[in-house]
Amino acid sequence: MRIIGLLGGMSAESTTLYYQAMNRLVRERLGGLHSAQLLMWSVDFAPIAEMQAQGAWEAAGEVLAQAAGRLEGAGAEAILICANTMHLVADQVQAAIGVPLIHIADATAAAVKAAGCSRPLLLATRFTMEKAFYRDRLRAQGVEAAVPDAADRDRLHAIIYDELCQGVVTQASKTDVLAMIEKAQACDSVIFGCTEVGLLLSPEDLALPVIDTALVHAQAAVDFALS
């Protein structure tokens, strides 16, 4: 089994989901007492979030690149950035290491297509919904993601940072996000494109197919680890 290095803490709430999911998936595949071989570097998210807000992406990328190098030095044979938004600096991180970086958008695109879909609604931070890095990578693989309108993007961004990343889950926010999905008449699926969205919604809440990016990313990592 290969060793996977997790770049976590962005936020710590969803990094916990990665750890649980990867260990569960390995146990399901191998049985018995098997679990995933993992190394983790969990950042302090507050400085990273401030860099995001200021548009200091290169500086944020350097923090992750250094951490990825430490994970590689400790024996990691592939790296996961346990967040969607910070894949904006994925190329910078990959350039700093000699092992593969398993990209969350690639895992997401594959899962959308496996569900027989091509026009998902992307629910994510404002950075992930509005900047080109994520939707362009999906598009290159035949997935054309739509996003909520500007007011809903602002509301969703606030829910993620002010609530979910801090472990706060409210019925009011769930109702608001379900209303956003209801508006997306032309979409054939929903991407939980922030790794915290699965804390607020579950696939059972929706009639459309759901791609939870944290889970499909964890699956891709386990596939690599056991290949």
Rank of each mutant, 00 (worst) to 15 (best):
M1P: 14
R2G: 00
R2F: 00
E13K: 02
T15P: 01
L17D: 14
Y18V: 12
Y18I: 08
Q20N: 11
A21F: 03
L25D: 10
L25T: 02
V26L: 08
G31V: 11
H34F: 15
M40D: 03
W41G: 04
S42L: 05
F45K: 00
F45G: 00
M51R: 15
M51V: 03
M51E: 06
A59E: 14
G61L: 04
G61Q: 06
E62T: 13
A68C: 09
E72H: 13
E72Q: 15
A74G: 14
A78W: 07
I81W: 03
I81F: 03
A83I: 01
V89M: 10
V89T: 10
A90V: 10
Q92K: 06
Q94H: 03
A95F: 04
D106H: 12
A109C: 11
A111K: 13
A114P: 08
C117K: 15
P120I: 07
P120C: 06
P120W: 07
L122F: 14
L122P: 09
R126V: 09
E130W: 01
E130C: 12
R135S: 03
E144K: 02
V147G: 05
P148D: 02
A151C: 12
I159Q: 10
I160A: 06
D162G: 13
Q166E: 12
Q166P: 01
Q166F: 03
G167E: 04
Q171R: 14
K174F: 04
K174G: 12
V177L: 14
K183C: 05
A184Q: 08
V190G: 02
F192Q: 02
T195Q: 03
E204K: 07
E204H: 11
L208K: 15
V210N: 10
V210Q: 10
D212C: 01
V216N: 05
H217R: 08
V222R: 10
V222I: 15
A225D: 08
L226Q: 11
